[in-house]
Amino acid sequence: MRRLALVLMVSLLVGSAACVKKQPAATPTPQPPPAPTTTPRPTPSTVTSNVPPPPPVIPPDPSISVTSDPLMAADIEKINKQSPFKPVLFAYDSDALDDVARSTMSANAEIMKKYGTWVITLEGHCDERGTAEYNLALGDRRALAVKNYMVSLGIAADRLKTVSYGSEFPFAPGHDEEAWKQNRRAHFMLTAK
């Protein structure tokens, strides 16, 4: 399972480099709106230079095979653009964690265990219903619910920071349930590694 996830991650990164993988609409990870100025497409020379991996300068960790892991070498912004973490989704006006949420967090916890130095900011987000003021607190409760569960899975609390963006930064721009369900989320943002 873990190996499969890693293969998926690698293929995602490579796929994005070649710009061939277009996610179907049914993917559980919503596509972020494209940034208007920055195109994450690396130059061909970058791609070829990736084929023979550069000598690892990271201090070797006996439990991790460093040389074959592009996530280890990628910068934070790049990892967040093709995040290995899946968001935890919530029901309307709720911070309760359902079975899907728990299994998502288990997978995310595995990644955090694998990359033991990573620090994550858990962003709580809400859909546009409810008042903007109420959503500031609701987003906080969502982020904290995820943090508490992640800690129960063995992730150190000081590797999990929380912030609520309320309904200020919707991921999906629409005004229907399809958009709302993506916007009711706790988002895993890598902030240090």
Binding site: A35, E77, N80, S83, F171
Partner: peptide
């Protein structure tokens, strides 16, 4: 203001 550090947020 696109230099915000959160690429897939608003």
């Amino acid at each position: 203001s696109t230099s915000r550090q959160m690429p897939d947020a608003g």
